[in-house]
Every structure is written in C-alpha cells, then in structure tokens.
Design a binder for these strands. Sequence first.
DNA 1: CGTTAATCTCGTACATCGTACGCACAAGAC
DNA 2: GTCTTGTGCGTACGATGTACGAGATTAACG
Lengths: 255, 255
Amino acid sequence: MSSPSQTEKSPALIWLRDEPGTRRPSHSRAQIAAAAVRIADTEGFDAVSMRRVAQELGAGTMTLYHYVRNKDELVMLMNDTVMGEVLVPDGELPSGWREAITTIARRSRAAFERHRWTLDRVTDISIGPNGIKHFEQSLEAVRDTGLPAEKRLGLISLVDEYVFGYSLRETIDFGGEVGDEQWPPGTLELFERELQSGAYPCISSLMSDELHTDNVADGTRRTMQIISQPERFEEGLHQLLDGIEAGMGSAPKSN
Amino acid sequence: MSSPSQTEKSPALIWLRDEPGTRRPSHSRAQIAAAAVRIADTEGFDAVSMRRVAQELGAGTMTLYHYVRNKDELVMLMNDTVMGEVLVPDGELPSGWREAITTIARRSRAAFERHRWTLDRVTDISIGPNGIKHFEQSLEAVRDTGLPAEKRLGLISLVDEYVFGYSLRETIDFGGEVGDEQWPPGTLELFERELQSGAYPCISSLMSDELHTDNVADGTRRTMQIISQPERFEEGLHQLLDGIEAGMGSAPKSN
DNA sequence: CGTTAATCTCGTACATCGTACGCACAAGAC
DNA sequence: GTCTTGTGCGTACGATGTACGAGATTAACG
C-alpha cells in the first residue's frame, strides 16, 4: 500500500507541506529562518548548525526536525528569506524595462551584500515562493520590450548571471585599505616572488609603468582596489544593458 | 625568539613553502591534487575528505598533513589545478582583444563545466600560481585596447564576472530533458500550485500565450530549457562585449 | 661502516557535525 | 475522564577535520 517514495502523503518539498500548526507549535518557519539568518549574518554560514540554531531559539536540537526535514531544508528557508528582500515593493517597479531591470539588479546585489553567506552554498540553490515572485517581477520588468519569449527570458537570465557573478567576486573583496585581510595571508608575498621571476611582463608593466610603483605589494594592493571599486557594478550593468539594447534594435535573426 | 605567528620560517601560504622533497616523499602536490580532483569530478565535492583522498593515494589519512596544512590548502591545490586548465597554451592567444578575451572566457567556462565542484566552495577562493598566470594572460589579451589601466582592469573583471555568473547558473542546470532531476523533487508541483493562485500574471501569460501550453509542468520545463540553452553563453558574452566596445569609442569621461 | 638527526608515515583520540530513534508530555476531541 | 496525536527533546551513532606523538626510513657525517 505504502510505496517507498510516497508521493501523496507528506511531500518531499518543504513548500508543499503545511507548517506545524494544528496543535500549538512554539516556533514558526519564519522565526526559525530569521534566527538562522541572524546567526549567518553575524557569525558566518559555518556557524549555522542545527544545535546553534536551536540554541538561538531556546529549543532542543531535535525540535528543529519537527519543522524541517534536514539541514538543507533549513537552508532553503534561509535562502527564500533573502529572496524576499530582493522583491521590489508593490508599485515601485519603474515602467521602462531598463530602469525596471536595473532596480531589480540593484536590490539583488544589495541583498547579497547584506547576506554574503548566500553565495557560500550557491550550488544547491532551490527556488521557493519568493523565488517565483522574483521571477514574476523580472518578467514584468521586460514585458514591454516587444521581444519574443525566448529573448526576454534570455535577457533576465543574462542580467541575473551578471549580478550573481559580480556579487560573488565582491564577496572575495579585497576592498578598501586592506593588505591581505580577505586573501589568505602571504598572498602578497606570493605575488612579489612570482613577479620577480620576470615571467609576467604585462603585470609588471601595469604596476611599474601605469600604477607608478616599484613596490610589488603596493601595486598589487592598488590593482585589487581598482577591481573592487563599488561603482564598477553600475558601470558593468550599464555596459551590459547597452549591449543588450543594441541587439534589440536589429531585426531578430530568423533561424 | 619564536614569535607566535612566525613570518620567516614555514610561511602560512602553501605556495611559499617548498613541497616535501629532501628525503624521498611518496607523493607530490600535483599527485595529491589530481587524486582529489578525480574524486570531486566523479563522486562530487562532498566526497573529497582527507580520508578518501588518502585512500585514493594508498596512504594513511594523516600522511596528507605532511604535504598540506589543512583541508583548505588541499582545496587550494585543487583550484589551482583547475586554473591551470584555463590557461591558454603559448602562442594560441589571438591578437585582437575581443577574440583574445573570448578565448579566455570560453576556456574558463569549459573548465568550470568539467569541474562543477569548483563553484561549490566559491567564497573562500585564493589565488595561486596558475591564478597569477591567468591574470597575466587576461592583461595580455587587452593590452592593445589603448584603454587606461583602470578601464582594462575593469574590462577583464567584468568578463570574468559574467563567465563566473553564467557558469554558476549553469551548474544549477535543469538542462536537457529533465523534469526535476537537478531541482529538489516537487519543485514542479510548487510552480503548479503557486500559478493556480492567479497571482502571477506574467508567468501565466508567458506559459499559456507564448509557450502555448496549459500544462504548468510542461511550461515550466520549457522555460527552464530556454534558460539553459548552451548557446546563451556565446550570445551573452557577445552582447556584453558589444556594450563594452560601444563604451570604448566614446571619449573617456573626464571626471 | 655505524650513529645521528631530520624527514616521512600514520594509528589513536577527540570535538563537532547531521540526524535516526524513540520516549515523554500535553493539547484537543470525544 | 480517556484517547489520539501533535509537539518537544535526550541519547546515540557514524562521519568529518585534525592535534598529538610514536614509529619507520633515509641522507649525511663521522
């Protein structure tokens, strides 16, 4: 009677199951997710263990498993919570497609910046309710482009990919006045040693001729600073959208 | 005499230390890295444990710690190995900057595709010898653009970010004929349920009006397929480079 | 050759993690 | 009251990263 993978009773995906509520549950999914997000924000993603989250909630460890099947589902809750912050509030989505897409891209980047841990476990991402709403908003943003469905989907995916990639690199940020704050200690020395071998003419010329420094460490730092300049996000997005727009005017290729 | 963080003896960064070799080491960093990469490729990144790698080498677990300080260093070796595959062989870098950058981008994407696990632990990325060579090649690619240093660095970073973002999304690929092979099981049902609420006019209209399907599952699958079309990589790269090129012709803004 | 000291190997042990199992309690239905 | 079952959680187990230190091997030197 009961198949090993029962498809009707108690679905595998958490969003398809009701959260506990018939009796009088002490916690809600939202509370649990919020607690986990709080820990990840302040102590890093690795600090998010079932024990730590339970402790944060003042509950026993195994209690969590009444709300969540396993840790992956907890992470799903966390990710969807962040996705909720990406959503543009009702009525605030600009009408022009460029402005609309830009607004969404900025919000995405801001959310990733607030919760850098999102990009830690990026491979096993799932789509939850807020993810679907995000998709809806993205489609809304490009509705009036006049492009066929495939082109519109390609457009929003392309921008998503850029924002993702940019945010990811930003996470590995060497920003500000750091030396090797984010990089593993010794990275500067590695550069120094390698460059002295003379095998890197372009890097060497960049540093000595253009950045005007004979100190490799300073040159490396300066290079990292340039790459990490936050205004590069807007510039890159602008260039990307320019390229997209240029391709829109031309007749759609017929194959 | 010995400061707690000794800077001269035994540097913290693995690339600054000689690998064992004075006596007669049974293994080399290259061998160890190759073994770990092999495991990650075939069994997934999570299967790469110190015990498993040691077993693959026919060595005791703790033997690895003679070649590597901790697992992070092992992962550094793995990542730099992949970076080695990204490097364009001598003399094969095209002369035009667009072609050169495109070549590098394609190789990067191909390497990420061969070793999807690279994107799993993307946050704690470090730069090794091959990473520096990659940087050199990127600079070489844009050498003759005539752009100032900052613009050139921005250019190669921008393309890197796109490739990274694209590859990342590709990892979460729903490609081919899958239903919910990559997505957590039940994702299709979630879409189905959510869309029936009528709260997603753009998604609904996309599926019924443009993809001509009243079956939500089919529409979702079709949408995923469109997004996952591999030729989107080249298209997106092309559009991005178009946007960059358009910005190059104009006089550099003076502020 | 034998002695020595550094290099290389690795077994044991421990803290920490995710979570299977199953009992205890208590809320609602009757 | 009694029964059912939703809810809470203690215990226990296997897996992981790695600290510690003891053994084995080799090169160098007398």
